[in-house]
Design a binder for these strands. Structure first.
Lengths: 161, 161
DNA sequence: CAAATAAGTCAACATGGCTGACATAAATTC
DNA sequence: GAATTTATGTCAGCCATGTTGACTTATTTG
């Protein structure tokens, strides 16, 4: 099979994988009256306590106004708490509450389980390839930002062909 | 690093990969007044000429009404043509027009290029792992449908750990 | 002929993006 | 200290794309 043909197949697999990957979490979120946008905020705040609003905008690549809508709801409903920065009092540092932690972990476990299952047949070598592939799918000028967000020895662990 | 921690990292990489992967095509589509939903329809019709409306619904997992909106526009603007089925005249078989083919190929090449680039450091073994991983990320009860859509010796080519 | 099926359509609504304009408070710079 | 920049918040309205529910039409099937 020609390379382009194989690559298009991977494009399609990526679509189907993402389609099902998100649908599962969406169902749980709906029980709490939340959507995918809330999930993303909850997730990244949980993973990076003290994250600022500006950081979230950089991560999600959405506008302040779009973020405000979901963030306001998350704060109002007690999933996320805001703390005024001590050094720079203009900043709002975000943290998940206990309630938020519970949900964030629940969703993380769900998605980790799916990833773990998909990696089951791959072994450590396959896992490294998958990691490398996904990292290189990120736009070149964004990889630095992403790398800074991930646990240390991660994307850098690049297997050779 | 514990397994769950590594898996969550992969969840995040998947988010960032998909974020950038789609943003690139979105920019081109916007030039033609089209969106991501149109792209998905155009893509699958291009890859599977003669696809029926019901097939698209199964692939995209959206409602008939959602599909109708974008499909109508694609037909009205001459990207896609409908043919009444000869055997079963209730069916509408969809095909991309020449105009539609041009755009579909343009977008496919863009995305294939990104996938190719991301696979560059992986080699054939890595490619097989990536394919396997993405396929196994699909919900179990959907894998059959997806397999039927892909070029033959594809997802079945399962490397062992 | 009756029932099931494939597709199309109307209306209303929710979510989550967007732009543009503007407000506030705090930090920084001149 | 005044002026400017920065981080955040907010109002108003718009667009794309998903949803439910109800209903029609043409056609095939039992």
């Amino acid at each position: 099979m020609p390379a382009d043909e194989r690559y298009i197949t991977i494009v399609e697999l990526l679509f189907f994988a993402y389609r099902d990957f998100t649908r599962e979490a969406d169902a749980i979120l709906a029980e709490f009256g939340l959507g995918r946008a809330h999930h993303r905020v909850l997730h990244f705040v949980n993973r990076h306590p003290g994250l600022r609003v500006a950081d979230l905008l950089e991560i999600l690549k959405i506008t302040k106004q779009s973020l405000a809508r979901v963030l306001k709801q998350l704060v109002d409903e007690g999933w996320i708490a805001q703390q005024t920065g001590t050094q720079d009092r203009r900043e709002r540092h975000l943290r998940v509450t206990d309630k938020g932690t519970t949900l964030a972990i629940k969703l993380d476990q769900l998605q980790a389980k799916r990833v773990g299952g998909a990696l089951a047949a791959c072994g450590p070598a396959g896992e490294a390839f998958v990691r490398r592939f996904l990292f290189d799918m990120i736009s070149l000028d964004e990889r630095g930002h992403v790398e800074a967000l991930l646990p240390a020895a991660d994307a850098g662990a690049a297997p050779k062909a």
